[in-house]
């Protein structure tokens, strides 16, 4: 095992696959010598050269659109969109083209591409550079949506995403890029659709992903001091979703809190809550709670942004309401 940051782990996952498969390449804004806006692709241009790590113009539509074509023609593109907020500029290419090609063509095409993009608030980047938009993607059948919360998952899920024969949106959190942890070396694969219990507990299940997973772990430590033992379940991939793991955990604890940074209305927490209500109602000893951002755009001012972002305090409060 090596000690790596989340950002290095993402890069390592891409590097492993680029070495193994000559069809894997990277295209995006400033991803070449500059190494990407956050430095995630740093060094890959030097290692793999200008034919496999390519700067594009500011043209999100053709960054994702060309990836659809290249993937349909046999390559495995990794397209970088600098902020998830800019996905609005390429939603047709993703949602109407990449997502639907296989189905519309009667199963005869495949589109093995990854769109890598950072999400999340916390850096004062305001309304158009801070969002969490996973539900934009989970709502479209044909796309897989991944949100790693640890360095090891970041690597293992990246490799799985590249190997997957479907369009995958891989969302990395800006606040996690510097998070360090143990990461297995070489071809470490985390299968898509397999949740991970990040902390075992018997009293309440907290389902959280990405940055909120880390915040939930911190909240669980405090809750433990007050005698509440929370189980923290990280779905890791929202589509496909490991609902069996969620139901199993809720069967054990009888209580469910879902934490996400997305806004509440039409957020993915609503989907998970619905699944548990439909398929695990009998397990529940208390209503399901969601801890989410409010239904507003993301404000700039640090005071307002702190009020916006779900935090440990809000998680603890929600958990305690169930007892």
């Amino acid at each position: 095992m090596a000690q790596m940051t989340y950002m290095e782990a993402i890069r390592d996952g891409m590097r492993v696959e680029m070495k193994r498969d000559p069809g894997v390449y990277i295209a995006g804004e400033d991803v070449a010598q500059f190494g990407g806006c956050f430095g995630v692709t740093a060094g890959l241009y030097d290692e793999f050269g200008p034919e496999r790590v390519m700067n594009t113009p500011i043209s999100e539509a053709v960054i994702v659109g060309h990836a659809v074509g290249a993937a349909a023609a046999g390559l495995r593109p990794i397209a970088e969109i600098m902020f998830v907020d800019f996905m609005g500029c390429c939603m047709d290419e993703l949602g109407n083209q990449a997502a639907k090609m296989k189905y519309m063509f009667g199963g005869k095409a495949k589109v093995p591409m990854v769109v890598r993009t950072p999400c999340g608030a916390g850096m004062g980047a305001a309304a158009q550079h801070s969002q969490s938009l996973e539900s934009w993607f989970t709502h479209i059948p044909g796309i897989k949506t991944i949100m790693p919360s640890t360095p090891a998952d970041a690597k293992g899920l990246m490799i799985a995403a590249i190997r997957d024969d479907n369009p995958v949106v891989y969302i990395e959190h800006k606040q996690l890029l510097g998070l360090a942890g143990e990461v297995p070396e070489g071809e470490y694969v985390v299968p898509l659709g397999k949740a991970d219990i990040k902390r075992e507990g018997a009293d309440v299940t907290i389902v959280a992903w990405s940055w909120m997973l880390q915040k939930s772990l911190a909240a669980a430590e405090q809750l433990a001091k007050e005698g509440i033992n929370a189980e923290i379940l990280d779905p890791r991939t929202l589509v496909p979703l490991d609902k069996e793991a969620i139901l199993k955990s809720v069967a054990k604890t009888g209580r469910l809190v879902i934490v996400h940074e997305e806004v509440k209305t039409s957020g993915y927490g609503g989907e998970i809550a619905a699944i548990v209500t439909e398929e695990g109602f009998d397990y529940l000893d208390a209503p399901i709670k969601r801890v989410t951002a409010p239904d507003t755009p993301i404000p700039f001012s640090p005071v307002l942004e702190q009020a916006y972002i779900p935090n440990e305090e809000k998680i603890i409060k929600a958990v305690k309401q169930l007892f």
Binding site: G124, A125, A126, Q128, P297, F300, S301, P302, V303, L304
Partner: peptide
């Protein structure tokens, strides 16, 4: 990001 700013602190530089 102050309350007296053009956007009440909601917008910032951008």
């Amino acid at each position: 990001g102050k309350a007296t700013g053009y956007c009440k602190g909601k917008g910032g530089s951008m």
